[in-house]
């Protein structure tokens, strides 16, 4: 089960958030609802400190995921400082393939190569592009770990 999907830009702002837990993906009312909530800030803070910690303990080390008794968070950090995060059940295996797909197949094509979307997201800006939202939903819901 995948519970939510988050993207943070290099200014630490949440630019995309999608919640799958309560509503089935058909409804679009859980897109970008939690971007400014404390939950987003805490999640970013935890991921940020863990990345710092892992690179401090071993040079060039990259954080991949963390797990609690209840859930697991998978992380991909791109060279441009974007962070892609998927929250899933704690027994789900490696989701780095899906994260790579979301970045290289979807984000690059619909956001980076899109002339109408900003090069750099300003504070308060979020991804509203429907082809990205639909594409992300499709990739995530078609994944074997999404139930």
């Amino acid at each position: 089960m995948i519970y939510s999907f988050w993207i943070f830009d290099r200014h630490c702002n949440c630019i995309y958030n999608r919640d799958f837990a309560q509503h089935k993906p058909a409804s679009k009312d859980t897109v970008n609802r939690n971007n400014d909530k404390d939950e987003a800030k805490l999640l970013f803070g935890a991921i940020f400190s863990m990345s710092r910690l892992s690179s401090k303990l071993s040079d060039g080390n990259v954080l991949q995921s963390f797990r609690t008794g209840k859930y697991k968070a998978h992380l991909k950090e791109t060279a441009t400082g974007l962070r892609f995060i998927l929250i899933s059940d704690s027994n789900v295996g490696d989701l780095s393939g899906l994260l790579n797909q979301l970045y290289s197949d979807l984000y690059l094509n619909t956001i980076v190569k899109n002339g109408l979307s900003p090069v750099d997201f300003k504070e308060g800006m979020v991804i509203k592009n429907m082809s990205f939202i639909n594409g992300a939903d499709e990739l995530i819901t078609q994944n074997g770990d999404f139930i």
Binding site: S54, L57, V62, L63, S65, F66, R67, T68, K70, S90
Partner: peptide
């Protein structure tokens, strides 16, 4: 928090 707290951090090297 023994049930809900952080349990594992997976990184590239350890």
């Amino acid at each position: 928090q023994n049930q809900t707290g952080l349990f594992q951090v997976e990184t590239e090297k350890f």
